[in-house]
């Protein structure tokens, strides 16, 4: 006599169905996470008669990029590879060189009175400069700041900068404030 009851459903094709779905998601997936360099733009000023604050020549580190993507670092033809080292040296000014930025004694939490350099990094580019080069220059400057902050964090707290508490991190930011100025671009190399 025939067995009564519910006949078993064949699950053999289940794997095939799920494979199909798997392949769909494999194809549709884009794994790239959005990443990028964060920057803040200065607010728009309507009248340009207001003079920008005067900054002493020795406090400014100038980087110029022309339409042929050549770099002029502090008046000398330079390479992008040397930029980070030069920026670091400039910000830190370890030997109190009179051509490098002045220092001002400031009272900073955790550090007490600490000489903070009055540096400003100025970047100016041409309208014909390639975006990639511009971004690499920005990256090197940010990297210089990050390295200095990391070194200070290791020296003072014996910890990586990223693992410090918020207030300690802020104290370090006060010592090495990121001051990158971008001048209005010039159009010397001609519109391209």
């Amino acid at each position: 006599m025939a067995k009564r009851g519910i006949p078993e459903i064949n699950a053999g094709s289940m794997a095939d169905i799920s494979f199909l779905l798997l392949i769909f998601f494999l194809v549709a997936t884009s794994m790239d996470i959005d990443s990028g360099l964060m920057r803040k733009l200065p607010p728009w000023v309507e009248n340009l008669d207001v003079k920008p604050p005067e900054v002493k020549r020795r406090n400014v580190f100038t980087v110029l990029i022309n339409a042929n993507n050549d770099l002029l670092i502090q008046g000398e033809w330079g390479n992008i590879k040397d930029l980070r080292k030069k920026v670091k040296e400039f910000i830190e000014n370890p030997n109190d060189d009179p051509n490098m930025p002045e220092k001002e004694i400031k009272n900073i939490p955790y550090f007490g009175n600490y000489p903070v350099s009055k540096q400003v990094i100025s970047v100016q580019n041409d309208r014909g400069t390639k975006y990639e080069i511009y971004l690499k220059v920005q990256n090197e400057i940010v990297a210089a700041y990050n390295e200095l902050r990391e070194e200070l964090a290791q020296k003072k707290f014996g910890k990586s900068y990223n693992k410090l508490d918020e207030d300690k991190r802020e104290a370090i930011n006060l010592i090495y404030p990121q001051r990158i100025s971008e001048a209005e671009p010039k159009n010397i190399g001609g519109r391209k």
């Binding site: 580019n125 041409d126 309208r127 014909g128 400069t129 390639k130 975006y131 990639e132 511009y134 971004l135 209005e184 671009p185 159009n187 519109r191 391209k192």
Partner: peptide, 9 residues
């Protein structure tokens, strides 16, 4: 990456 800075500015 090959875009010129003019448009970005």
């Amino acid at each position: 990456k090959d875009v010129k800075m003019g448009i970005i500015t």
